[in-house]
Simulated assay, not measured.
Amino acid sequence: MEYAGVIIRTLILYLVMMVIFRLMGKREIGELSILDLVVFIMIGEMAVLSIENPDIPIVKSILPMVLLMIIQIILALLSLKSQKFREVLDGKPSIIISQGKIDEHVMRKQRYNFDDLLSQLREKDILNIGEVEYAILEPSGQLSVIEKKQGEKQEKVSPFPLIIDGVIQEKSLSRLHKDEKWLLQQLNRQGYHSISQVSFCTCIDGKLYIDEQDSQ
């Protein structure tokens, strides 16, 4: 009977964890934020403790797991509403290489060394740093790389959004050597008279790609 109880508790907790992780949303392991990882580890530890201690009522194990799920969902909803909250929660991408130039100050700030950089570049089959136009260290720890293009004419795509959730990204504009006045003029030409109309905007070959805010 003792083994049967362990099997039953394991199956119940397995199903509960499956439901919790599905409700928390689909994300690849490499895309998990530190907070996501902590929550997943805590839920896993609670499940293990419950299986190893059959004397503990299973409800007492499931309750804190569900509570963590609710907290995580609330935080995710808040991060959808506010870019600043999202940056506090998940962190911001760090530009390690910009226009072919390595930013060692950013690397030191992130405690990210050249061995880390070269290792992640090799994972993307890049052996020469000189081939890299932009390298961005994502909050998940992954390195996003945009290579330099040679020979044929290529579209000049800015990897830095100009508008996110209706908020102008001043740093992105400065990297393009543009200002808010220029951006507003470009938006007006395309029939957008308010930043609040725009959900997302980036620059492709000098032209704006715009995604409108969904109507509420």
Rank of each mutant, 00 (worst) to 15 (best):
E131G: 05
I129F: 06
E155D: 14
V157D: 11
S140G: 07
E123Y: 01
E133F: 11
S144Y: 08
P161D: 09
K153R: 10
E138C: 09
V132Y: 00
E133M: 14
K156C: 05
K156N: 14
E147Q: 15
Q154A: 15
R122T: 05
L127T: 10
I129K: 11
V132G: 04
I146N: 06
E152I: 10
V157Y: 07
I126L: 11
P139W: 02
I136V: 14
I136L: 09
E133P: 02
R122H: 10
Q150K: 13
K156T: 12
G141I: 04
I136F: 00
S158V: 03
E147L: 14
L137V: 05
L162G: 03
V157N: 12
G130S: 14
I136H: 05
E131A: 11
V132I: 06
K148W: 03
I146D: 05
N128I: 13
L143K: 06
L137T: 02
L127A: 08
E152H: 08
G130W: 02
D125I: 07
Q120D: 12
E123F: 07
G130A: 14
E138S: 08
K124N: 13
P161W: 04
K149G: 12
A135V: 04
L117V: 08
G130C: 04
V132A: 04
K124A: 09
E138K: 12
K153E: 10
L137S: 03
L143Q: 00
N128E: 13
L162R: 01
L162V: 04
L118H: 13
Q142K: 14
Q142A: 13
K153V: 13
V132D: 00
A135D: 02
G151F: 00
I129R: 05
S119R: 13
L137K: 02
E152P: 09
K149R: 15
L137N: 01
Q120K: 15
I126G: 02
S144Q: 08
Q142V: 04
P159E: 07
V132S: 00
P139Q: 07
K148T: 09
G141M: 09
G141P: 04
L121E: 01
A135L: 03
Y134K: 07
V157M: 11
E133A: 14
L121Q: 02
E152R: 09
E147V: 12
L117S: 02
V145H: 00
L137I: 06
Q150F: 12
A135S: 03
I136C: 08
L121D: 02
E138H: 06
K124Y: 00
E133W: 06
I129P: 02
Q154S: 15
L143D: 00
Q150D: 06
K153D: 08
Q150H: 13
G141K: 07
L162E: 00
S158I: 06
Q120P: 01
G151M: 03
E155S: 14
I129L: 15
V145C: 07
K148H: 10
E155W: 01
L137P: 00
D125H: 13
E152N: 09
S119L: 15
A135F: 01
L137D: 03
E138M: 12
S144G: 05
Y134H: 13
A135Q: 03
S140H: 03
K153I: 10
K156S: 14
P161R: 08
E147P: 10
R122E: 04
E131T: 05
S119G: 08
V157I: 15
E155H: 09
S140N: 09
F160D: 05
K153W: 01
P159H: 06
